[in-house]
Design a protein around this nucleic acid. Sequence first.
RNA 1: CGAGGUGUAGCGCAGUUUGGUAGCGCGUUUGGUUCGGGACCAAAAGGUCGCAGGUUCAAAUCCUGUCACCUCGACCA
Length: 478
Amino acid sequence: MAEKQEFVREITPRSVDFAQWYTDVILKADLVDYAPVRGCMVMKPYGNRIWELIQADMDGRFKETGHENVAMPLLIPESLLLKEAQHIEGFAPEVAWVTHGGDEKLPERLAIRPTSETLFCAMYAKWIKSWRDLPMLYNQWCSVMRWEKSTRPFLRTAEFWWQEGHTMHATAQEAQEETMRMLGVYQAHSEEVLAMPVITGRKSDKEKFAGARATYGMESMMQDGKSLQAATSHNFGTNFSEVFDVKYLDKDGALKYAHETSWGSSTRLIGGLIMTHSDDRGLVLPPRVAPIQIVVLPIAMHKEGVLDKARAVAAELEAAGLRVKLDERDTQSAGWKFNEWEMRGVPIRMEIGPRDIEAGVATVCRRDTLEKLTLPLQGVAQAASLLLGDIQSAMFQRAAAFRDGRLSVARDMDGLMRGVQEGFVRTMWCGERACEDRVKAETSATSRVMPFDQTPVNDCCAVCGAPARNVIYWAKAY
RNA sequence: CGAGGUGUAGCGCAGUUUGGUAGCGCGUUUGGUUCGGGACCAAAAGGUCGCAGGUUCAAAUCCUGUCACCUCGACCA
């Protein structure tokens, strides 16, 4: 028995080596594989399905808030990318270039998009003429490429899949409202769907997006206490509009620059999901993004009536709109299947065996707590739906409690240094870059966000002691 | 990009110090017994030892280079 338990833990325990644990989980759960291209990943069907479920939910939220999807080209002419100085300065080191068409050298290099602000702006300059054209609210789902030096599946890959929303507005106020609205959409999605609690706020100038006037982000704490930037929402003001000449004729007859926003989230969310919820047995998926919500396992399948009953139960669950897998393989033992589906994070395992059938119940095991219970077969779909709802909210509660337990408040550098060893630290900050650089040098932590709740801790910067301007969160980050 | 580590059967590894017939476990295939937490027995298939050079009668093993992956730093969604 002891040996069997060891065998289950082919996955390195989190407490021993978090990074190795992370890699083990995604490979054992069959989410991705490494590609022949350096730094690139292949999303396998199971991992890709999670992304599809994330996309479906998020895309619905984008449409509810008035956005439409477009498809922009993969390539950006060098001259276009170079237009906004700060922007290209931020991205230049990691741009991949197309230099040839067939054997012929191109007259101008083409960048493989690292992000599409420049393309959108070039098009917006053509499309926007009048105040009647605004706001223009577009989004695209695509992949982008950033030639990263060190990569890890989902967290940082050379090519990654994402959505990027790009909008143009008549006024600064509308642009700011849009920036906040989309940050709110990300937060709601993360907390309601991914069961991943986040802290939102504004980024310091140091951490801000290249070319933006203000960047807002949401940060989530992983089980090693490090922070993952899970999404960002930027207000560009008229920075790009002035460079790309995006102007409209306003009601008052004056020609004005449009105010721009952009916001993005990526397959990195899946990495966050894994590092938030999973355990030493493998993946734990929140029901709302689980490709399989319930796996039905016929037990002692060779016995009369078991398989028929299991099929009937699976069909009933499916008819209720649940994502169900009936595992009828006769090549694997029941115990083997238990472990496999646990490793792959299926929220509910439902066993249908001779004893269950006789008692009119199903034996059920929930993945988040590994707790076993029985559900009456009468009305099983409804009970299962309720249980999935419980699991979803319990996972959020648990993650939030974990996060709160590792969140500290500090008034000085000592407290800050101690705090970032564990998780997030809330302090006052004077607003100076020098203090951020000092924290980075001494603790390897960075400023994450200045939260919207600015209730002061005290009145002086925790780093330098000068009069404080903001409340800010610090953490080591991915 | 700096420091360290690892590349040997589908997967996990031993063998490398001291050069001399390519090994083990899991998985796979076939047959049988099992079947409520990774079952058991028997037989079988499966390898250009990451790649390229070099040294040698002989290289998985020694030397040089190179690529990939993993960890820790520096940079970023």
